[in-house]
Design a protein around this nucleic acid. Structure first.
Length: 577
RNA sequence: CGGGGCGUAGCGCAGCCCGGUAGCGCGCCUGCUUUGGGAGCAGGAUGCCGGAGGUUCGAAUCCUCUCGCCCCGACCA
């Protein structure tokens, strides 16, 4: 393909609205343009990348026996009403009415539609299992679209659905998808992890996400390099390190400290105007891990206390699983319920229900005295307060793995795929049932599996770039090779460029030739920006010595190769990958 | 939805505080010279200063409202 005939509007400077690296580079290198918040136009280069990614996905889906179909993006409301999601989902669903006044919505996902199809067509166990997938546009009225193509309001998704007669079948379909996803991401050249995730509103018990580590990611994952435990922080368990004793730690007096018995005594100490853990901690010269952070929350059955250690953050989702839905108490509610201002509340001498993090089970602590201007030291669990013990903190760096005890690492990541075991959440309300050998009616057991091709592209850029631009993994680059003839007026250069171009194309490679009448500097800069893995540079200097240069975009290393050997050499490099 | 920031030429920005005929760099057009990492010289074009209303003799600048975009948080089936 000729550069001069392709629309590649590169930008010398990054548009002000872009922040994420992938966003900046996609704009600068002429891959995308923004129509409105969360809505992007994919220009020729980006669309080629998307097509390559989708091709890889299709090949791997087909390989596990999934069948491609296509469902509408516009849905009637009544199916969504049957599963309850019409009302469960809020503003994130685009809703509209057709001319007849019927409620409709733009599909955010297709569980309802595919289950409707299964309910109409599947009768017998003989028809199971089935795996159906599609590449379809999804619409979600995101509260905050961000980071370019990473979080948009309209996006293409490969979504597949499995239908099995029982849980064993589901487990097999689920595993097939997990395996296929591994192959897809490997082929796309991404670094990634499979982590446990929260099924959330999707329903079902088991779910995993595929995560591409990147600082631009919105998710945080917990990884244990020792036992392999990996989970999204939205549910990851961890064990906080032991209480830290420093100079001032004598005040909380952990067991084992020489002077702990005397100074660890239960006693109120004045802490005027110090409310937060940070304030009291520096005032008393005691490590934050010596404190109990006491939070007043209002649950369905009234107010209760949540206790985490001073160096921890409360994990609201974990707590909600134990305590049901709750909300934080307002300032005046704290006064009303406890008779003291927030900042001075503690778990001892309080009759409220208490849910405490495991880390507070051992040690001696400082907490609010339930008395304005005072904190209490020497608080011992089970002696000075009783609580229900759970893991209700957010896992953080320095914590130990809940499975094996090794130190965990915490990493930001882009969610590039997810898989859910749905069970009967959709088949029951939509009556997708089959008859077994005995003629009994059973609900179909379902799974749901998604991949966002645009996120794969963005993650690939986030993981592969340098100061000059994108460095595409070979498999998903818009082209395999870019030919850069430095002087389009020169006959010899043009002829050799044309010959190499046709030979490479003849080998089935996708080739971009920068045939523009531009200065060398501009061609080099654009080539690096666009990020095609190999550049063949043809200039007078080299030809005088009988060579052209073959440069790898990633390393910037140039090999001097005879024009007649270039095609062979490129093929060698390709076969390695 | 809460907090913050920004809308001035195609892109990046200055001007706004302190009102007085809108500027810089890059890009674009023409010509000549150049041609291995975003060329040089000369000439040229380009603005509803996001929109509406108000204050004023006069508004990019001050006030009110509104729309859009970005960032942090909440949310994210």
């Amino acid at each position: 393909m000729l550069f001069s005939k392709l629309f590649i509007p590169t930008l010398r400077e990054a548009p002000a609205e872009a922040e994420a690296i992938s966003h900046i580079l996609m704009l600068r290198a002429g891959y995308v343009r923004q129509l409105a918040s969360g809505l992007y136009i994919y220009l020729p280069l980006a669309w080629r990348v998307m097509n390559r990614i989708q091709k890889i996905i299709r090949e791997e889906m087909d390989a596990i026996g999934a069948q491609e179909i296509s469902m509408p993006g516009l849905h009637p409301a009544d199916i969504w009403q049957k599963t309850g999601r019409w009302s469960d989902i809020g503003d994130e669903m685009f809703r509209l009415k057709d001319r007849g006044g019927r409620d409709m919505c733009l599909g955010m996902t297709h569980e309802e539609i595919i289950t409707w199809l299964a309910s109409m067509e599947i009768r017998s166990y003989r028809q199971l299992p089935q795996m159906w997938y599609q590449m379809q546009t999804k619409f979600r009225d995101e509260a905050r679209p961000k980071s370019g193509v990473l979080r948009t309001r309209e996006f293409i998704m490969k979504d597949s659905y499995s239908f099995d007669r029982d849980e064993e079948g589901l487990a097999a379909s689920y595993q097939k998808h997990a395996d296929a996803y591994h192959k897809i991401y490997e082929r796309c050249g991404l670094r990634f992890y499979q982590v446990q995730s929260d099924p959330g509103m999707m329903g079902g018990a088991t779910a995993h996400e595929f995560m591409a580590p990147s600082p631009a990611g919105e998710d945080t994952m917990v990884l244990c390099s020792s036992c392999g435990y990996s989970a999204n922080t939205e549910l990851a368990l961890s064990v906080s390190p032991q209480q830290k004793l420093s100079v001032g730690a004598t005040l909380c007096g952990c067991p084992g400290q020489a002077h702990s018995t005397s100074v660890g005594d239960f006693e109120d100490i004045p802490t005027p105007n110090r409310r937060t853990v940070a304030e009291v901690s520096s005032f008393l010269k005691a490590d934050p891990s010596c404190f109990i952070k006491t939070l007043l929350l209002i649950g369905k059955e009234g107010p209760f206390l949540a206790l985490v250690r001073g160096d921890q953050e409360l994990h609201e989702k974990k707590l909600a699983k134990v305590a049901g839905n709750f909300r934080p108490a307002q300032k005046d509610e704290v006064k009303d319920v406890l008779g003291v201002a927030a900042g001075f509340i503690g778990p001892h001498n309080s009759k409220l229900r208490k849910i405490a993090d495991f880390s507070l089970k051992e040690g001696i602590f400082i907490s609010g005295a339930n008395k304005e201007g005072f904190h209490t030291k020497g608080i011992r669990p089970d002696i000075h307060f009783e609580a229900e013990w759970h893991d209700i903190h957010v896992a953080q760096t320095g914590d130990a793995c809940a499975k094996c005890g090794a130190e965990i690492t915490i990493e930001k990541a882009i969610e590039i795929g997810n898989i859910f075991q749905l069970g009967t959440k959709y088949s029951l309300p939509l009556k997708a049932v089959y008859l077994d050998e005995e003629g009994r009616e059973n609900p179909v057991i379902m799974g749901s599996y998604g991949i966002g091709p645009a996120r794969i592209a963005a993650a690939a850029i986030e993981q592969n770039n340098d100061k000059d631009g994108i460095i595409w993994p070979q498999s998903i680059a818009p082209f395999d090779v870019e030919i850069i003839p430095l002087d389009m007026g020169d006959k010899e250069i043009e002829e050799i460029a044309a010959a190499i171009y046709s030979n490479l194309s003849g080998e089935g490679l996708e080739v971009l030739m920068d045939d523009r009448e531009e200065r060398p500097g501009i061609k080099f800069k654009d080539a690096d920006l666009i990020g095609i893995p190999y550049q063949i540079i043809i200039g007078k200097k080299g030809l005088k010595e009988g060579i052209v240069e073959l440069k790898a975009r990633r390393t910037k290393q140039a090999e001097r190769v005879a024009p007649s050997d270039v095609v062979k050499r490129i093929k060698e490099l390709h076969s390695v990958l």
